[in-house]
Design a protein around this nucleic acid. Structure first.
Lengths: 185, 185
DNA sequence: ATTTAAAATGACACTTCTGTCATTATAATA
DNA sequence: TATTATAATGACAGAAGTGTCATTTTAAAT
């Protein structure tokens, strides 16, 4: 019994993502979110009592998705290409992550907890990339004259290479060539 | 005659930069800025009547510096290494640029004008990097099987490889090796 | 049809940033 | 020392976001 809910976590997350991508952290507030959802602002407080809680909860959700996919990638044949392909799919994640530093992590206990989880997931992500590169090193496919953490940073940074003048597939192809072989002939 | 100014554009720019680097766009407002400068908030309005004007004016200033330095780099022996070294010096510029999308560019005519100039300077920057890469191609030092714009994006993205566990010099060295030669042995 | 539990809502008080302006302070000049 | 031009300041009104709560709406159960 009782009245049926008009919004669910799925829509909440989807509109949160869209709002941040279009307006950034400064433009992310419950008034704008309510407008997108077609409900009154106060309605959102029935789901999350602070915008920081909604945001960090969503971020954790997003990172968990990506970490899971990295696991699949690491079991693939060409793991480096797999990573680049994953970056292509989650290119917007990076933009989402950039709002992290501005979140007041001490807003509530819940936020604090989610923030810790986010940090842990990001570390896990870097760790998994590192393992992949080390596997490639052992297979003799990757150089050993450079600090492994620099190479991890290098692979992670490639997510930011802008695309989208050609197809996503050709982006993956070209970026993989560059990350593996560099600029040189 | 008249009272002497207590702040100048140099300090204004410096504190603007520091404030954005530490608090992002959300934390950039005249109250915080006045605190850093040690003056009343209303004092800043004697210099800039909108925060968007101050911000865009500063951005133009910053971009002009970098564009000028790219010119020097392009006349260097190893231009690609020169670019990476420049990225090392201006690593924070990228973080500054990320606030651009959130600026209300129609705040005033002045802001509109500066925003146009910023876009032009960014395009000029990319253009200069492109020319450098084309020169390297003609010298036979760089591959020709990948869209030039993808390569420009690749070089620009390398600014985001995190450093700073080792020295800045070893960052330049390692990142140059990676950008030129990739991960492969 | 009535009851009821849960969800949605609008109104209210609060906080923070914005932009202006009359007043006050100060350095140079007469 | 008195004058004057310019800079700095605090106070004010306004705009926008936050979080709460009493009231209203609605779907299901009786």
């Amino acid at each position: 019994m009782g009245r049926a809910r008009t919004i669910d976590k799925g829509r909440l997350f989807h509109e949160t993502e869209q709002l941040i991508l279009s307006s950034g952290y400064a433009g992310f507030h419950f008034k704008a979110l309510a407008g997108r959802l077609g409900v009154a602002r106060s309605t959102i407080y029935n789901y999350y009592s602070k915008k920081e809680e909604l945001l960090t909860d969503f971020m954790v959700h997003l990172l968990e998705q990506v970490v899971e996919k990295i696991d699949k990638v690491s079991r693939q044949d060409d793991a480096v290409e797999g990573l680049i392909r994953l970056w292509g799919q989650y290119a917007y994640m990076h933009q989402m992550m950039q709002v992290m530093p501005y979140i007041d992590k001490k807003a509530t206990k819940q936020v604090e907890k989610s923030a810790e989880k986010m940090a842990a997931l990001l570390a896990e992500m870097r760790g998994k990339v590192k393992v992949i590169l080390q596997q490639e090193q052992q297979a003799g496919r990757i150089r050993e004259d450079i600090h492994i953490d620099t190479m991890v940073g290098y692979v992670m940074a490639s997510v930011q290479i802008p695309v989208r003048q050609h197809s996503e597939e050709s982006w993956v192809e070209e970026v993989t060539l560059l990350v593996k072989g560099g600029l040189q002939k």
